[in-house]
Amino acid sequence: MTGTAALTDPRPLMDRAVAQVAALVAAVPAERLGDPTPCAEFDVRALLGHLVAGVNDGAQLGEKGSVEWSKPPTGIADDGWGRAYDEGRARLAAAWADDAKLARLVSVEWGTFPGAVYLTSGMVLESVTHAWDLSHALGHPLPLDQELAELALGWAQQFLPADRRGPEVPFGPVRPAPEGADAYARLAAWLGREVA
């Protein structure tokens, strides 16, 4: 992955994306933790665990240049998810505060890239995608940042084309999005979610 993702500083977009997720996480009532999400393998609680693990993994990558993927955390109280996510995103921001890290190569299971590319195609795309999953599961309680979704959709279409699906890629076949769907719904459909 090269191009504009490697040439620009993605940290402002990452900050917006994780702040949006943080607002959604804070809006989750305890009684909704067992509800399903559009991401078939996750209920709301499991998605929150995945999100908390994701910001901490991204922080570890910034701190060390490589990552040992964490398992979703256990033992978080029903009312503790917002705090756990906020702690992870603060660690993430601190880990990537040094400008030099944007050019440093980092290694993840899908390749080795400059840090800026990882933040764009990893942290921002993942956060935006799961923001829609969580928002959808909760009945869309907050407005979502459409600009983030438009950018993420462009990256997804470039780096995850429709013919790159199957066991080695954790996304289902591209699904149709309804006519007039917003950028989040189009992104979700591109990544294999069923969009009603």
Rank of each mutant, 00 (worst) to 15 (best):
M1R: 09
G3Y: 09
P12M: 02
V18L: 13
A27C: 06
V28P: 01
P29R: 09
P29G: 03
T37A: 05
D43P: 08
R45P: 01
V52W: 04
V52P: 01
A59I: 06
K64M: 02
K64Y: 03
E68F: 01
S70W: 04
T74D: 14
G75K: 09
G80S: 12
G88Y: 06
A93T: 15
A95G: 12
A97T: 07
D99M: 01
K101P: 00
K101H: 07
L102K: 02
W110K: 13
G111R: 02
P114I: 04
G115D: 05
G115C: 07
Y118T: 06
Y118F: 15
T120I: 00
T120N: 12
G122L: 08
V124N: 11
L125F: 10
V128Q: 05
S135W: 01
A137N: 09
G139T: 12
G139F: 13
P143K: 10
A149C: 06
L151H: 13
L153D: 06
A156M: 08
F159I: 14
R164E: 14
R165T: 09
G166D: 09
G166K: 05
E168L: 07
V169Y: 11
F171D: 02
G172L: 05
P173T: 15
R175C: 07
P176R: 14
P176S: 15
G180N: 07
G180S: 06
A181S: 15
A183G: 11
Y184N: 03
L187Y: 08
A188N: 03
G192M: 11
